[in-house]
């Protein structure tokens, strides 16, 4: 302690605002923390590791014969669907963990540091893209193991994966918002699944739309998740980046444009 000397508070030169460069740096530091936490608590990765494997196996063999006539014919339809469903579901965890984090003592320290106010939030969202990448890779790998050979080629599959990750990241802002405003982690989970189930199941992810009753078809066709699923199918199976992909990106942009300011404002109020 003798080696340290404290510069007197009155003789320091200080700024009252945080620049963009520092904001980015702080956010990456916080994302780094998120990654260490993931490594420390691997059980938190169950949803992105076990779920893709189990769901792919289950749906392939349960519905394969009934919906597409054979497993091989169902895979090109199912894998993009299950991919979107798994990764979008994963984005709920962002909100739940954010809530848990904000209730901890360590958040007080983040708030007392001269860092960008947004960094803990941005870092959490950033770190979670790694989860989406894991889920995406595993789902495609599982499909490959079951005999799925995407006709679009590797490049298109990677692009499809990136599209899913970007859209899920956008959707995670919705759950981050719930995470910031909710009182407990359990309630975040509750609200989020209420939103999520209709979105993922009332889509073309698992079944052809024309088998549905008309009122459902209407919802399924406007559901952004359907567009994302179609976009992934087009990319993986025919290597086309079509209208659905653009609609998905547009939808993602709208979600971010609406929920990012909402979340940030609610977060700042508490932070």
């Amino acid at each position: 302690m003798t080696a340290l000397t404290i510069t007197p508070g009155a003789s320091r030169t200080l700024k009252n605002h945080v620049g963009l460069a520092q904001t980015v740096r702080n956010s990456f530091s916080m994302a780094g923390r998120g990654l260490i936490k993931m490594r420390r608590t691997p059980e938190q990765l169950i949803d992105v590791t076990v779920q893709p494997i189990i769901f792919t196996l289950m749906f392939t063999y349960i519905f394969g014969g009934a919906i597409a006539g054979s497993v091989a014919d169902y895979l090109p339809l199912l894998i993009p669907g299950i991919l979107v469903q798994t990764v979008v579901t994963t984005s709920v965890v962002t909100g739940v963990q954010l809530r848990e984090d904000m209730d901890k003592g360590v958040f007080d320290r983040f708030k007392s540091l001269p860092i960008a106010r947004i960094a803990p939030l941005a870092g959490a969202l950033l770190a979670d893209t790694v989860r989406y990448a894991i889920a995406t890779t595993l789902t495609f790998a599982m499909g490959f193991a079951l005999g799925y050979r995407p006709e679009g080629g590797l490049g298109a599959v990677v692009l499809a994966g990136l599209l899913v990750i970007v859209c899920s990241w956008a959707i995670s802002w919705i759950f981050a918002f719930f995470g910031v405003i909710a009182r407990s982690a359990a309630s975040v989970q509750g609200i989020s699944f209420l939103v999520l189930f209709p979105l993922t199941f009332l889509s073309n992810a698992f079944v052809p739309v024309d088998t549905l009753p008309p009122f459902l078809q209407w919802f399924v066709n406007v559901n952004p998740v359907s567009h994302l699923v179609t976009a992934v199918r087009d990319l993986a199976n025919t290597a086309t980046f079509g209208g659905d992909a653009w609609i998905s990106l547009l939808g993602a942009a709208i979600i971010v444009a609406v929920f990012a300011p909402l979340t940030v404002r609610a977060y700042m109020k508490k932070a």
Binding site: R33, I36, K37, R40, T41, K104, G105, V106, D108, R109
Partner: peptide
Amino acid sequence: GQYASVDETL
């Protein structure tokens, strides 16, 4: 803080 404000998982 009153209760250690460090990250428990790190």
